[in-house]
Design a protein around this nucleic acid. Structure first.
Length: 306
DNA sequence: AATGAAACCTGACAGC
DNA sequence: TGCTGTCAGGTTTCAT
């Protein structure tokens, strides 16, 4: 479901609602697909942790976690007090929503939707729920404790620093023009495919790739490495303006996307090409064309885009 | 190394 | 009503 603007909207909404709260219990469903870390490790890392901040990296929601001293269970089994107990244990909970994932904050009395795979009970009795019918979404945890405190498994996930998760590619809203141009140099793949490649830019998905290419006047099948410097400058500007406008409108609600409150976004009303195959181009009346690139539906105006 | 197709899942919708 | 086929905001894996 979600690309950068939707994930940003959800992360902001969740942050506003749960920052500072402590997770008192965790329930995980029995379907294995949503869990990229060991389920027991997820429960262990989340239970008793305080939510310091919720933010976005690429298409991931990143929840910064902290807790004082060693984990309760470990302390209880030890007879000798842990000397490192004063320093907070740090970690991150990573949420990727896949195509249909939702992260909801609500009261415990709210009816449980089908396909709920995780419930985090907070210290004010509210819950964070992860719901995902199609199960392309993924949950994982990173341990960011100092090495001397926890010499066991380190954060090994790709895109991870000792400082935390940084994602696989560059942030489209922050990348410089030079770095942007360098991303595509020598690549023979269609520019549309390159924009969807999260190890280059992360956060852009199918909707915003199509909308950005329309704004920049570039055909999606053009070879990425053959775009001119001027075209790449236009493309970077188009991506950034599309993403910022979409964030300002709360994202695109194409089917059932909603933010942490259950509210819809409005950027779908601004789509110029996405899902408009056969309809007249809003600039020139030419019917919008739909083709397949890298297995993804791709929409463009054959007159406005070259 | 890079590119593309297939696979992973369920649900909504169109057409018969 | 119920079947079939198509499509869907994403990523990973496997074969070229």
């Amino acid at each position: 479901m979600p690309e950068l603007p939707e994930v940003e909207t959800i992360a902001r909404g969740v942050d506003k609602r749960v920052r500072g709260r402590t997770i008192v219990s965790v329930w995980l469903g029995s379907k294995p697909e949503p869990f990229r870390s060991e389920p027991a490790g997820i429960v262990d890392a989340l239970t008793g942790s305080t939510i310091e901040r919720v933010h976005r990296v690429g298409k991931h929601i990143v929840v910064d976690l902290a807790r004082k001293g060693p984990a309760k269970r470990r302390a209880a089994r030890r007879s000798v007090p842990d000397s490192g107990g004063q320093r907070p244990r740090l970690g991150q909970w990573l949420v990727h929503l896949g195509m249909t994932g939702r992260l909801l904050v609500c009261g415990p009395q709210e009816p449980l939707p089908p396909h709920t795979h995780a419930i985090l009970e907070l210290d004010d009795a509210r819950e964070i729920r992860f719901v995902d019918p199609r199960r392309f979404g993924r949950l994982s945890v990173l341990d960011l404790s100092p090495p001397d405190e926890k010499p066991r498994k380190r954060a090994g996930e790709s895109g991870t620093h000792s400082q935390g998760f940084v994602g696989t590619g560059q942030e489209p809203l922050e990348i410089s023009l030079d770095a942007f141009r360098a991303l595509f140099r020598g690549r023979r793949t269609p520019i549309k495919s390159a924009l969807l490649n999260q190890s280059l830019l992360h956060g852009v998905g199918n909707i915003y790739a199509d909308e950005s290419l329309f704004r920049a006047g570039i055909r999606p099948r053009r070879q990425a490495g053959r775009l001119t410097g001027r075209e790449l400058e236009r493309l970077r500007g188009a991506i950034q303006s599309v993403l910022l406008e979409a964030i300002a409108l709360g994202g695109s609600s194409v089917s059932d996307y909603v933010d942490a409150d259950g509210a819809k976004g409005f950027f779908q009303l601004e789509h110029k090409v996405y899902l408009r195959a056969g309809e007249p181009c809003l600039a020139c009346q030419t019917p919008i064309r739909r083709i397949l690139i890298a297995g993804r539906g791709t929409h463009y105006c054959p007159t406005c885009q070259h």
